[in-house]
Design a protein around this nucleic acid. Structure first.
Lengths: 205, 205
DNA sequence: ACCTGAACACCGTTCAAGT
DNA sequence: ACCTGAACACCGTTCAAGT
C-alpha cells in the first residue's frame, strides 16, 4: 500500500513548504519510520524534487530537524532547572541529567538525528553549533553556581561540563541501543545512581 | 571509475567466503567508505547475491564486523590493564578510560557499527551481548578490586560500572561527532580530566 | 552446495521542461 | 519564483536458473 499525501493543495504553490517539510519530517520520525526525502515530500503532497528549492540536500533538511530538537532540548533542560529552583546545586545537576536522558529516550529518533553522523562536519551548520553552545552554557552556569556557593571545589569547569554531558549522553545513547536496559519508569532513579559518583566527586577533586 | 575486484578466483567456489567478506568489510570501513553489501562483494570478487549464502542479510554481516570490533576492544582494554599492573585502582580506571576512548577514535567507523542503531534488537545477536558482558565484567573487576582494597567506598557496583562506561562512551561518541573537539595527541590528558571527578567520587559516595 | 543474472522496489540527486 | 517528470546511478532483497 503506497503512502498517501496527507494534504491536497488547491494552489500550485504550497506557500510554506519549508516549514511543512520540517513538520512532516518530525511526523515521520515520531512514528519511527524511515526518514527519507521522498517520504517527507509524499506526506506534504509535493514532488520530491520540490525539496531542493528549500534545502540544498537531505542533510540540510536533517539539520533543520536537528535544530528543532536542540531548541526543544534547551526548553526541557531549562524547565528542569526552574522546577528545582530552590534546590541545592547537587539536586539541580541531578535534575538536569534526568531531564536530559528522559528527552533522549522519549524522542529517540529525534535525538539520533541530533547526534548522528551526518551533521558532524565542522562548521557546516553554525546554528547547530550555536544551540549546542547554549546547552553547554546552561550546564556551565550550574557548575559555576555550585563552585561559587562553596559546595563544589572541582575544576577546571570546562572539563567538568563535558564530563557531565558525556555521562548523560553516554547513558542515553547506551540505553537507546539497548546496551544498557532500563524500564522507562526506572530511568529517573537509575540516572540518579549514575551521576551520584560524579556529583560526589565535585566536592572533593 | 568502477571499483574493481581485488582478487581473481581460479575456482568457481571461493572457499572461505564468509571470512573474506568480513575482512573486506573491515577494509572498507578502514578507508571510511560506505559499507554496503554490494561494495563488499565487489571487493571479494563475487556476485553480491553470494553474500546471502553466508549471512541472512546486511545486518548480520554488520554483526560479524561488530563482533570483531568487540574482540579487539577487549584486547585493547586488557592490554591497558596489563600495562598498569602495579598501579593504584584509580590509575587503572584512568588507563581503562584512555584505552577505551583511544580505540573509539582510532577505529571510528568500526566503533560506530558496534554501537550503531542496526544491531540493537534485543537478543538478536547473542554473541554481541556476550562480548559486551565480558567488557562489563572487566570493568567490574577493577571496581571490585578498588572496593576490596578499601580505596573505593562507592556502591552499588553495577551502576558504578555503567556510569564509568557511559562516561567513556559518551565522551568518545561526542568526540566522534565533533560536538567535543579534541586533537588526537591531547585525548589522553583530556580523558583523565573527564574521569577525574568520577574517580574522586568513588572515594566518597 | 554454492554462486549468478535479471528483476523489483526503493533511495538521493541532476537536467531540462512546465506553470 | 516555484514545482514537476523523466532519467541516472546507486541500494538491499527476492526468484529462478546455472555449475
Amino acid at each position: 500500500m503506497p503512502t498517501r499525501a496527507r494534504k491536497k493543495r488547491e494552489t500550485y504553490h504550497h506557500g510554506d513548504l519549508s516549514n511543512a517539510l520540517v513538520a512532516a519530517a518530525l511526523e515521520v520520525i515520531a512514528k519511527e519510520e524511515q526518514l527519507t526525502l521522498r517520504e517527507v515530500s509524499r506526506r506534504v503532497g509535493v514532488n520530491h524534487r520540490a525539496v531542493y528549492r528549500h534545502f540544498a540536500d537531505l542533510t540540510s533538511l536533517l539539520a533543520a530537524v536537528a535544530e528543532q530538537g536542540y531548541r526543544q532540548l534547551l526548553i526541557v533542560l531549562q524547565e528542569a532547572l526552574d522546577s528545582a529552583k530552590r534546590s541545592a546545586p547537587e539536586k539541580r545537576m541531578e535534575a538536569l541529567a534526568c531531564a536530559y536522558v528522559a528527552f533522549a529516550i522519549d524522542h529517540s529518533a529525534h535525538y539520533r538525528i541530533m547526534f548522528g553522523r551526518r551533521l558532524n562536519e565542522d562548521g557546516q551548520f553554525p546554528i547547530l553549533e550555536e544551540l549546542v553552545l547554549k546547552a553547554f552554557e546552561l550546564i556551565d552556569a550550574e557548575v559555576l553556581a555550585g563552585i561559587e556557593s562553596g559546595r563544589f571545589v572541582a575544576r577546571p569547569r570546562r572539563e567538568l561540563v563535558f564530563a557531565f554531558w558525556s555521562l548523560a549522553h553516554g547513558f542515553a545513547s547506551l540505553a537507546l541501543v539497548r546496551r544498557i536496559k532500563v524500564k522507562r519508569v526506572l530511568v529517573d532513579p537509575y540516572v540518579k545512581q549514575i551521576v551520584a559518583p560524579f556529583i560526589a566527586g565535585l566536592h572533593a577533586l
